[in-house]
Design a binder for these strands. Structure first.
Length: 565
RNA sequence: GCGCCUGUAGCUCAACGGAUAGAGUAUCUGACUACGGAUCAGACGGUUGGGGGUUCGAAUCCCUCCAGGCGCACCA
């Protein structure tokens, strides 16, 4: 099986905006891989506003010197409106510099576009189901789950910005062995017994136990149900199971909500079993000839579709295996009309990818397209640099609430979303708690607050946006800031394509830095008795445009953009 | 043993196959009688884990070795 990232990238749409129209005729008939040609904003500003490697790409098939090809192209580019200069550099880069007026026009465009700036149509009208978190209702969401809450919700926002019709979905696993363990743990707690061998421990278990007892007591009072203590053991455990799961579910929803994450659908696994959906899914696969029986169990021949081994769907004891729910669930999503189904899983579940992709193929769908599984690496929790072992059984779990209580929602979300999900993340609670200024979120938020402060000051001294002359935005820091602002749409697009929200975070950090440096060099309001000029007015547009971009970017991350700090 | 992810500055992490590998933080030096100093300017800091290969060009792609994390059920 090819690497997931590779498959993901191969399936992503290539974004090519190189304009070859300015080239001569000898280039037209060439066949080159468009994905290898890039028109980009160079890292180094001395290389101009835009740069392209096209000459180096096409030199070989042409049998020509890259610099000569570049020169030919450059002569055409120089004639374009708004282009100030075109240089050939290094092995054959074409560096394009725009005149200030052309570059500055962007500030006006951003302010006009407002919240729409940065959005695109990459996935216009595409129905997407994004499933994430889906933690078992056997305890509070721990720190690993919080990462998916932050990354998943942000990804949903980014995909929506590209026009996707996204449904956020939480698969609520309320069926099976884990839940039974949870129920047994509650019962044990109620009866003063030690935590069962395979059960859950910790303070929250006794808390939930007390609440179940209280909730059941209300039921007794209301409709005369039998006293809890008088129930047979089996019924007693069922009381703890049903009410305990319900309470846990409510708690999880609440903490996610407090974290700024609300799902459109909380899907209960139980409903799949109750509605015969599992049977229907199995029947469908059986009709397709992918089912066989062996050793008293029902199997899905996943090896036919690249899986390591065939998988049991119905165990020999007649109960459905876990994957049976997945089959029915996937089918349900497809029947609800989702073209693309994304599931975010922790690295501890990446072993499922093969079988789920095989399942997709068995249903006649296309793996990695109709179903896409995003694997994220786990979070290591540190305390003063020492890794902490978390154990649900021992109850030594750091929860979502713990993290939010320590650093707040904005800082927590930002810290979790600013790194690639491919890399393991170390979170040092003590560090985050003691020195919150270390979190770059404050740098970005401060930049936004500063744009708002500048706007307020401008208004108070009579600087308004009645005039906009882009050619007056010609300071070096303005050129850099404008260049950064221009990147936003492609950053959003790339973050959506690659499913990598962290790109947005890194980007707004750069914008914040460029803004602070501009602020240091260019005043929006006049000093002392100086009259208000069009320079001030034009700069106000740039100030407001920057605020808009940071606001839009923070919005994609689910982080607030404060007016003041 | 097989598979997936990772290895980049003291630390936490970026970098669409491109130009001199970047930020934050830490350490050191500077800048407020100017729109918020939660800021800015500068310095220090790297054999991108090691070794091969592909390419005009590799942190990025391929092979191999080393190290760490996580998986390889008729458990969920």
């Amino acid at each position: 099986m090819a690497s997931l990232v590779e498959r993901r990238r191969a399936g992503a749409e290539a974004g090519i905006e190189a304009d070859t129209a300015a080239g001569g005729e000898r280039i037209a008939p060439l066949v080159i891989d468009p994905a290898s040609v890039v028109l980009e904003r160079p890292k180094n500003r001395e290389h101009g506003d835009w740069a392209s490697n096209i000459a180096m790409r096409i030199a070989k098939p042409l049998g020509a010197n890259p610099r000569e090809v570049a020169a030919e192209l450059a002569s055409g580019l120089e004639k374009l409106e708004g282009v100030a200069s075109v240089d050939i550099a290094g092995p054959g880069f074409i560096n394009i510099r725009l005149d200030a007026a052309a570059a500055g026009q962007l500030a006006h465009a951003i302010v006009e576009a407002g919240p729409e700036y940065g959005t695109g149509d990459l996935y216009a009208g595409v129905t997407m189901n994004l499933e994430f978190v889906s933690a078992n209702p056997t305890g509070p969401i721990h720190i690993g789950g919080v990462r998916w809450a932050a990354v998943g919700d942000s990804l949903a926002r980014i995909l929506q910005a590209e026009g996707a019709l996204v449904t956020r979905e939480y698969y609520f696993n309320d069926h099976g062995e884990q839940i039974d363990r949870f129920a047994r743990s509650l019962l044990a707690s109620y009866e003063g017994q030690p935590t069962p061998e395979d059960g859950y421990g910790g303070q929250y278990i006794s808390d939930i136990t007390d609440r179940v007892v209280a909730a059941y007591a209300e039921r007794v009072a209301a409709d005369g149900a039998a006293e809890l203590a008088s129930l047979p053991a089996e019924e007693k455990q069922e009381v703890f199971r049903s009410i305990g799961v319900e309470l846990m579910f409510g708690d999880i929803r609440q903490s996610l909500h407090d974290f700024g994450v609300d799902f459109d659908v909380y899907f209960h696994e139980n409903s799949l079993h109750d509605s015969q959906a599992v049977e229907r899914a199995v029947a469908r696969l059986r009709d397709a000839g992918h089912i066989f029986e062996k050793d008293g169990a029902v199997w899905l021949r996943t090896t036919e579709f690249g899986d390591d081994k065939d998988r049991v769907i119905i165990k020999s004891d007649g109960n459905a295996a876990y994957i049976a729910g997945d089959l029915a669930y996937y089918l349900d999503k497809r029947e609800r009309g989702f073209e693309r189904n994304l599931i975010m899983l922790g690295a501890d579940h990446h072993g499922y990818v093969g079988r789920l992709m095989a399942m997709t193929a068995a249903f006649g769908d296309t793996p990695y397209v109709n179903l896409e599984i995003l694997i994220g690496q786990l979070v290591t929790l540190l305390r003063d640099g020492v890794p902490q072992r978390m154990s649900k059984r021992a109850g030594t779990v750091v929860t979502m609430e713990d993290l939010v209580d320590a650093v707040g929602v904005d800082a927590a979300r930002y810290a979790l979303v600013r790194s690639s999900a491919d890399s393991q993340l170390d979170i040092d609670l003590d560090l985050l708690t003691k020195r919150t200024n270390d979190n770059p979120v404050f740098y970005v938020q401060y930049a936004h607050a500063r744009t708002q402060s500048v706007a307020r000051n401008a208004a108070s001294v009579g600087v308004d946006r009645s005039v906009f002359d882009a050619s007056l935005l010609d300071h070096e820091t303005e050129s850099i800031l404008l260049g950064a602002l221009a990147e936003f749409p492609r950053v959003v697009r790339q973050a959506a394509e690659l499913r990598e929200p962290h790109r947005v975070a890194r980007y707004i950090e750069e914008v914040a830095g460029d803004y602070h440096r501009w602020y240091d060099n260019c005043r929006v309001t006049p000093v002392g008795d100086e009259p208000v000029t069009d320079v001030h007015r034009s700069r106000l547009w740039l100030n407001d445009a920057t605020g808009q971009v940071i606001r839009n970017g923070l919005g994609l991350l689910g982080v607030t953009a404060p007016e003041r700090m």
